[in-house]
């Protein structure tokens, strides 16, 4: 578990009314938007559990849409995110998912398409007090908080890929806080997620892409 800062207690600084339903939702979506990176064309949010039942009164929808456009939890523009998204030409929709006891009560699926036709889907859970984590990327189960600078590597599950990643980290003096590998099944697509204490250098993605078994690299600075 990460250390709890005094600013986790007195914080986040946020647009109300709920640290879980507003700020946490915004944080998940902001992370998803960063992972998408390029210009967003459309986004669909599927809300589950308590999110599905109370999203309107909590402004969860405004917070999600604000987050995807990069607004932080304390950005007053969250209130007007519907209008801003329309101005930016982003198509958006909200749906509610089926009730499922196995799904965390504050869960959202975010399905994004960029202007070049790439798509990405993310599942996030809001854990309370503004804390959240990502639990799925393109239907592969993962787990990371996005609180640290992170590298997300999409790769073919083959020997040597992780060594390639750790070599790069070592050569660039990047200290790993957490590193985990998630995969669909043996030999298929896998995700390596590195959460670091240090800023990820520019050009990390290009360097890592040199391995032929790596399909895609997303870097997230804080």
């Amino acid at each position: 578990m990460a250390f709890i800062s005094v600013f986790d207690v007195l914080g986040p600084n946020m647009i109300g009314p709920s640290s879980s339903h507003t700020a946490g939702a915004c944080a998940i979506s902001r992370l998803a938007g960063k992972m998408m990176g390029k210009k967003l064309a459309s986004v669909k949010f599927i809300l589950y559990g308590s999110f599905a039942k109370t999203y309107h009164g909590h402004g969860t929808d405004k917070a999600l849409l604000g987050g995807i456009m990069g607004f932080d939890t304390d950005d007053i523009r969250i209130r007007d995110s519907f209008q801003i998204a329309k101005e930016r030409g982003i198509a958006f929709s909200f749906e509610t998912g089926e009730d499922d006891a196995d799904i965390h009560p504050n869960t959202v699926d975010i399905i994004m398409n960029d202007t070049e036709g790439r798509s990405l889907s993310i599942r996030g859970e809001s854990l309370g007090g503004g804390k959240s984590h990502i639990t799925r990327i393109n239907n592969v189960e993962v787990d990371f908080s996005g609180e640290y600078p992170s590298i997300i590597v999409v790769q073919r599950d083959r020997p040597g890929v992780v060594a390639h990643i750790t070599n790069y980290l070592s050569e660039n003096d990047i200290n790993v806080a957490f590193m985990r590998l998630f995969r669909e099944s043996k030999g298929e697509t896998a995700y390596t997620i590195v959460e670091s204490d240090d800023r990820i250098p520019e050009g990390a993605a290009q360097e890592l892409m040199k391995n032929k078994n790596i399909y895609e690299v997303m870097t997230l600075q804080m």
Binding site: P12, G16, P17, S19, A23, D74, R79, G129
Partner: peptide, 13 residues
């Protein structure tokens, strides 16, 4: 409750 700016301490509520 009106989507204004606050500090969660420890929560928004």
């Amino acid at each position: 409750a009106s989507m204004g700016l606050i500090v969660a301490a420890p929560t928004a509520g």
